[in-house]
Simulated scan of single mutants.
Amino acid sequence: HQAVIIIGNYTALVGDPSGRDQTRARLTQEQVETNARDYLTQVGKVVDLTRAEVVRNGDWFSAMGFLDVLELCSKVTVAQLLTRDDFAKRQAAEQAIFLHECLYPVMQAWDSVKIRADIELGGTEQLYSFMLARDLQRDQKLPQQIGIMTPILVGLDGARRMGKSLGNYIGIGESAYDMMKKFMQVPDSVMRMYFELLTDLPLAEVERLLAGHPKEAKLALARSVIGDYHPSEQATEAADRWQREISQKELPAEIPTVAVDSSLLVDGSIPAARLLVATGLCSGSSDARRLIAQGGASFGDDKIRIESHDTLVAVTSGLLLWAGKKRVVRLEVQ
């Protein structure tokens, strides 16, 4: 078979409604192209792009006139669209379903017609599009494709499908250490799913790991998956670094240095909230006050907790400033 990768630059302009309980924000063409480049980088870690065919569905949708769109839409009923799980749930909850969203599964199905797909791979939430593609292929006198589906992986929140727009994802294009930090946040309740969908470990080994300490199971999971996308030694080093810096609370190996303008200091000191904003650890005074109120701000090698937004912090070059457990900078007075 010839592997064909479809960059959905026109479906992305609509926004995938799969697994959504509300309308997805629409992207600009510039955002779509930026994402497309990122997707190809990630796909290249799994598929040999030199042997695959890469197409953009804008190649055929941009050439369609309004009459062509009407012809395509005439092949799908509203009743059929409302059988799609996400639309059915939103209708039952009396939540808005916009007309442009209904075009997404139709466009996806038409992609299969245009590339003459005989096998299509996707998640279980794509069942409707897969079946609609078969109907459209039959209508065009083409052989009907076979759909191969895999279960949907839930994200780091343990509830919703993993997705970049939801902020609950682990990117295979991320560094080994960034992936490691995220894997260690996977909820215990979904560990079995992650092992089954992301690794080739024997089920007996998975059972043994899950019966033990969750931290050891997550380290094993992370090393296995990271090793698929990075050299194995990087996966091992990422695990060791996480143990040193997070589990054993040692200082990070790389601490960025941030300059503090001496004009901000009065007698060598500055209110804590203002310092957090000046160093970029907080986006604004409200963010800084919230962090301090939650007990997440501290300074010094001993991580002295900042108790109030107006606490005066004596700033000297080399002082460590913390925002949460993982973000830390070293100050340099200039």
Rank of each mutant, 00 (worst) to 15 (best):
I6D: 07
G8L: 06
N9G: 00
Y10E: 14
Y10C: 13
L13D: 15
V14T: 14
Q22G: 05
Q31E: 04
V32D: 12
N35I: 05
A36T: 03
V46L: 00
V47L: 00
R51H: 14
A52E: 05
V54W: 00
V54Y: 03
R56D: 13
G58R: 04
G58V: 10
M64I: 11
G65V: 12
D68C: 07
V69S: 12
C73S: 12
K75M: 13
K75S: 14
T77G: 10
T77M: 10
D86P: 08
F87T: 01
H100P: 13
M107F: 13
S112F: 05
V113I: 03
K114G: 11
D118I: 00
I119N: 11
E120A: 08
T124R: 03
E125P: 06
Q126F: 03
S129T: 12
F130R: 08
M131I: 07
L136W: 15
D139F: 13
L142D: 08
Q145N: 06
I146M: 12
I146Y: 08
I152C: 09
L153M: 07
V154L: 13
G155T: 10
G158M: 01
G158H: 07
R161Q: 11
G163V: 01
Y169F: 02
Y169M: 03
G171N: 01
E174S: 05
E174A: 04
A176I: 04
M179S: 01
K182Q: 05
V186F: 08
S189L: 11
F195M: 04
E196Q: 08
L197Q: 13
T199R: 00
T199V: 01
E205S: 08
L210A: 02
K218L: 08
L221Y: 10
A222P: 02
V225L: 04
I226E: 10
I226H: 03
Y229H: 04
A239D: 05
Q243P: 00
K249P: 05
A253T: 06
A253L: 07
A253N: 06
I255D: 01
I255H: 00
A259Y: 04
S262W: 10
L264N: 07
V266A: 09
A272P: 13
L275K: 09
S285G: 08
S285H: 00
S286L: 15
A288F: 05
A288W: 09
R290C: 09
R290A: 12
L291A: 14
I292T: 14
F299A: 15
F299E: 12
D302G: 10
I304S: 03
I306L: 14
I306V: 15
S308C: 14
H309Q: 15
T311L: 02
V313L: 12
T316K: 13
A323E: 03
R327Q: 14
R327D: 11
V328S: 07
V333W: 00
Q334W: 06
